[in-house]
Simulated assay, not measured.
Amino acid sequence: MDKGFVQFSSLLDNDFYKFTMQHAVIRLFPKAKARYKFINRGKDAFPPGFAEALRQSVEAMCKLKLTIEEKEYLRITCPYLAPTYLDFLQGYCYNPDEVSIEQDGERLSISIEGYWYRTILWEIPLLSLVSELFYGMKGQLRNNDKEVIQITKEKIKKYAELGVTVAEFGTRRRHSYKVHQLVVQALKEYGENSFVGSSNVHLAMTNDVKPIGTHAHEWFMFHAAQYGFKMANSLGLEHWTEVYEGDLGIALTDTYTTKVFYKQFDKKFAKLFDGVRHDSGDAIEFAEQTIKHYQKLGIDPLSKTIIFSDALNYDKVARIADYCRGKIGMSFGIGTNLTNDVGLQPMNIVIKMVEAFPEGDEWIPVVKLSDEKGKYTGDEKMIHLAKTILNIPE
């Protein structure tokens, strides 16, 4: 890689849930629009010329095309994706005009705007571009393949000894594509029965492992803009089942706090969905709350699964596994700790939907009220309104 330029090699170098959501958006909300913004949680200082280098990398994205081989892979691996969607994806190309990039000293601003079915694919590639460019321009790229492989090998062996299953979720904050590729290869080689797949579709395909993912917070955030906060969770779930009919059955709980979610995650949804994903707040409290919810509905928690995915490392996984074992099914999606463990401080960056434009409406601010207050995102007035409507205490 030229330290001022990063180029993607595949349209599928993205998280699986972006494609599954895109498929659903095309079917249900083809005229909706969305706006996203970059949030630099870690307050990293960007070097001079960063915006220009990022713009160059973004411009190159328009050259990516779904190959015939990739389309056939999706057709066979993901039968729930409609043939019409695969045809659409074969004709899809990124439009760099949807992305605005500015730099003011060491501060970086990125915004995305356009039809939701198009702009939904930008988030993950942009974050990985920012991360790899940042390390490249600071001269901090890592080329010790053996060290990356050895670190990953040791980690997956320890997870196997714990008796847990692990998926790789680290595209968005990876140190580089090369490190990411080495990590997935090592997980596949040494993971035995512990490594179950990757959220990155391209690397899942090239390593012959399962692509993993369902939906993200923006799915429910948009539903709040379209239908109101009271209906966002229930209609988000209803529409998901309308498209996927029971496939891709892991529900994300914390867009408006898990407590609110479980008020609407009734017996029908609890039976239809295979489980839930934990993404914020205390993992043990979440597991306890989830187990009690299933028990209250007369459902055996051991027939369901929690996917834990919040900033995991070995110690956290061991603590969670010790609590959940024999009580409820579990699996772990590990991101940055796998794809950016190279002796540097990983970046803490996100891109979030900030406004939605439902069909026949106007631009409406959207918010996320996770189980960790520090992770609230969005317009302050709208956050207050959501908390008032949903009876979430200050």
Rank of each mutant, 00 (worst) to 15 (best):
Ile349Asp: 01
Pro96Lys: 12
Gly374Phe: 05
Arg319Ile: 07
Ala225Ser: 11
Lys368Val: 00
Phe46His: 03
Lys188Trp: 04
Ala225Met: 08
Tyr115Ile: 01
Lys63Pro: 05
Pro30Ala: 06
Lys296Met: 14
Leu187Gln: 01
Gly249Phe: 02
Pro47Gln: 07
Glu154Phe: 03
Gly329Asn: 14
Val209Phe: 03
Ala283Glu: 15
Lys259Asp: 15
Ile351Gly: 00
Thr214Val: 10
Tyr135Thr: 13
Ser111His: 00
Glu218His: 10
Asp322Val: 09
Tyr73Pro: 13
Arg35Gln: 13
Ala321Tyr: 10
Ser309Cys: 12
Tyr115Gln: 02
Glu59Asn: 15
Lys65Ile: 02
Asp322Lys: 15
Pro125Val: 06
Gly246Leu: 05
Ala32Val: 10
Ala356Glu: 04
Ala216Glu: 03
Thr152Cys: 05
Ile124His: 08
Leu235Glu: 11
Gln103Ala: 03
His215Val: 09
Gly298Trp: 14
Asp282Thr: 11
Glu362Thr: 14
Leu141Tyr: 01
Ile120Ala: 06
Asp371Glu: 04
Lys18Ser: 09
Leu235Phe: 13
Phe308Trp: 02
Pro79Arg: 07
Trp240Leu: 02
Asn233Lys: 09
Lys373Gly: 03
Lys65Thr: 09
Glu102Val: 06
Ile112Ser: 04
Trp363Ile: 07
Tyr190Gln: 04
Ser303Ala: 15
